[in-house]
């Protein structure tokens, strides 16, 4: 054991040696800290905020956003981005409202399946045509919007009988919003599947270093298509939750959720450069985003500032979580 010891010592002095710095640890804890600070601040501003009903209202409001963003988180973990989720959710809401009378209880699984296929198609276009993911999904965004406008006749589609999707907007045990339960279950299932299977390292390797992952024999293309597929399915499911609470589907129903969803992902601490992060982080991010919105109205600030806030948050959160070793030339 004599020769290698010198190598080990050398590694100690090498540039790569240091562990996570204090700043890195802080950045990693930032989402949870932000959430705690927000809760405390809101409680101070409005003592009523800590009542069970207000807390439940926040959780309920965050649920569709969390579901929507959780799926897209997988795409971001793989190093891509999905800008089509909101438009796909809108389209899904229209389809659900149109199909409920005919398909009844099968309507929502059908919608989720269609959304999953739509996501997978985008993934396939990204992988096989070698088009950057933001362009594919930007294109997807307008295709989905266009289809939604055409099939809905550019009007809101009301839902008359919502029995089969009522589970998306009711209370469990009288208090807990069912949408929140759905969100937690979805995220838990996603997280569990990723965690206990080799998918975890496949996704992370793809996100951190696609070239290395490919040369280690990881089916990078399949992993990416899978991520887009899950992202699509989550958009479909988020649409089910939205339709359940608005009793209607609309061609632009979920469009305004794109920025909050992207914000939720990056606030959660998932790096836009890929690899680092996770779906639970996105749930925290979704709660932070929702609390900010609630907070603004409690403090009495105009809702118009919401958009400015999202814009600022996205840029700052991305800057904090960026993997700078990977972006030598930033375009």
């Amino acid at each position: 054991m004599s020769t290698p010891a010198s190598t080990a010592k050398r590694s100690g002095s090498a540039a790569v040696a240091a562990g996570p710095t204090a700043a890195e640890r802080l950045t990693s804890l930032m989402p949870v800290l932000a959430l705690a600070v927000l809760v405390v601040a809101l409680a101070a501003a409005d003592p009523d905020f800590l009542r069970r009903s207000s807390l439940m209202a926040v959780v309920d409001a965050a649920a569709p956003l969390a579901v929507l963003a959780a799926g897209a988180t997988l795409v971001v973990l793989c190093g891509g981005i999905d800008l089509s989720i909101a438009a796909l959710a809108s389209l899904s809401s229209v389809l659900l409202a149109l199909w409920l009378p005919g398909l009844d209880a099968l309507a929502w699984p059908a919608v989720v399946a269609v959304a999953a296929v739509a996501g997978a198609l985008q993934g396939a276009a990204h992988v096989f045509l070698r088009i950057p993911s933001f362009i594919v999904t930007l294109g997807g965004m307008s295709v989905f919007s266009s289809i939604a406008l055409v099939v809905s006749g550019a009007a809101t589609v009301p839902v008359v009988d919502d029995t089969s999707i009522r589970w998306g907007f009711s209370r469990v045990l009288g208090t807990v919003p069912s949408a929140a339960v759905v969100a937690v279950v979805v995220v838990a299932v996603l997280a569990l599947i990723v965690k206990v299977t080799p998918l975890d390292s496949s996704i992370k390797a793809t996100g951190y270093s696609e070239a290395a992952a490919r040369l280690a024999g990881i089916p990078v293309d399949l992993v990416k298509i899978g991520a887009f597929c899950v992202s699509g399915a989550c958009a479909g499911l988020a649409a089910v939750l939205l339709v359940a609470r608005t009793f209607s589907g609309g061609p632009t129903l979920a469009d305004s959720l794109l920025l909050p969803a992207v914000a939720a992902i990056v606030i959660g601490g998932t790096a836009i450069t890929g690899g680092h992060g996770g779906v639970w982080r996105t749930v925290v991010g979704a709660l932070v985003v929702t609390l900010l919105r609630v907070g603004l109205s409690i403090v009495g600030v105009s809702a118009a500032y919401e958009s400015i806030l999202y814009g600022a948050i996205i840029v700052v959160a991305v800057a904090l979580t960026l993997d700078r070793s990977k972006v030598l030339v930033v375009k």
């Binding site: 080799p198 390292s201 992370k204 390797a205 951190y208 270093s209 070239a211 290395a212 992952a213 040369l215 280690a216 024999g217 990881i218 690899g275 680092h276 993997d323 070793s325």
Partner: peptide, 17 residues
Amino acid sequence: TEGMVGPMSVADNMTLA
């Protein structure tokens, strides 16, 4: 850039393939 995934653990890198 091609041989290893720097931020991942020794164990995950070793069992990647």
